[in-house]
Simulated assay, not measured.
Amino acid sequence: MPQITVDYSADLADGFDRPGFAKALHEATVEIAAAKLPACKSRFRPTEDIVVGPDTEGHAHVHVHIALLAGRTEDTKARLTEAALELLRTHLKTADGIVLHASAEVRDLDASYRKFEG
């Protein structure tokens, strides 16, 4: 915990500093949501196809999913979401003419969540 997943348009790969974004988001998660830095885990999933409304051309998408153990306030979750979006602004460069659709959410992990380290 936390489990962070970032879905992003594959054509953003060259302009997306994924390691820098993950490091900065991990630090923000520690500061804002009282997570422990060694517990922060991020994975990035490029998506090949995106359709926004009726269009396929000229759009790119990034969605940040942050899953935390239950117990954070709605204000804490909102602050972390805003931080994630701000960090995207500094770690992601899009080509001219591309409309970026960026979003983020923080949710509670289900009570069934378990993990092990081996």
Rank of each mutant, 00 (worst) to 15 (best):
residue 21 F to N: 08
residue 34 A to R: 11
residue 21 F to A: 06
residue 30 V to E: 05
residue 60 A to L: 07
residue 6 V to C: 04
residue 41 K to N: 02
residue 55 D to Y: 07
residue 61 H to N: 14
residue 56 T to F: 05
residue 39 A to D: 14
residue 6 V to P: 03
residue 11 D to V: 11
residue 23 K to S: 14
residue 40 C to Q: 06
residue 17 D to E: 07
residue 11 D to Q: 13
residue 24 A to H: 07
residue 29 T to C: 09
residue 27 E to T: 10
residue 21 F to E: 05
residue 21 F to I: 00
residue 49 D to M: 13
residue 39 A to S: 08
residue 32 I to A: 00
residue 38 P to V: 00
residue 12 L to P: 09
residue 7 D to M: 11
residue 24 A to T: 04
residue 36 K to A: 12
residue 49 D to I: 13
residue 9 S to A: 04
residue 1 M to N: 14
residue 67 A to D: 14
residue 17 D to I: 07
residue 64 V to K: 02
residue 45 R to V: 15
residue 50 I to Y: 15
residue 32 I to G: 04
residue 43 R to C: 10
residue 46 P to N: 05
residue 69 L to R: 14
residue 56 T to C: 06
residue 52 V to T: 13
residue 63 H to M: 08
residue 2 P to M: 05
residue 40 C to P: 05
residue 1 M to R: 10
residue 10 A to Q: 15
residue 66 I to N: 11
residue 70 A to D: 14
residue 48 E to N: 09
residue 30 V to P: 01
residue 28 A to Y: 03
residue 32 I to T: 03
residue 7 D to Y: 13
residue 45 R to P: 00
residue 1 M to I: 10
residue 71 G to S: 11
residue 17 D to P: 05
residue 61 H to P: 06
residue 56 T to A: 11
residue 22 A to R: 03
residue 60 A to V: 03
residue 17 D to Y: 05
residue 1 M to L: 12
residue 29 T to E: 01
residue 14 D to R: 10
residue 63 H to V: 12
residue 54 P to T: 15
residue 16 F to N: 10
residue 37 L to Q: 03
residue 17 D to H: 02
residue 46 P to V: 05
residue 56 T to W: 00
residue 69 L to A: 14
residue 22 A to K: 08
